[in-house]
């Protein structure tokens, strides 16, 4: 998946100096895969958030309806 940071609005985030140094070292050793700590942070956050925020295509109400059908059919 492409990695865009150009042209997007930016905000500042604070992280510990220690973590920053570790990240900076990682970027140096990445052999050009990441150009800056900002890029690394953005990449990692994106990965984590895409795992967590799975877009549900149904509401709680619809979920209950689905469960009702599954119960009626003996699946649960």
């Amino acid at each position: 998946m492409g990695f865009k940071i150009m042209g997007e609005e930016k905000v500042a985030v604070h992280i510990s100096k220690e973590l920053y140094e570790k990240a900076r070292k990682y970027v140096e050793e990445s052999e050009g895969e990441f150009k800056s700590v900002d890029e690394l942070v953005e990449f990692v956050l994106k990965e984590v958030l895409s795992e967590e925020v799975e877009e549900k295509v149904f509401t709680k109400e619809e979920e209950e309806k689905i469960k009702e059908r599954l119960r009626a059919l003996g699946y649960i």
């Binding site: 689905i66 059908r69 599954l70 699946y75 649960i76």
Partner: peptide, 17 residues
């Protein structure tokens, strides 16, 4: 029909289990 489940249903089912 009794055995037709769509992905949205199996996903809810697997999670319920």
């Amino acid at each position: 029909e009794r055995y037709r489940l769509w992905p949205v249903e199996t996903r809810v089912l697997f999670e319920a289990k």
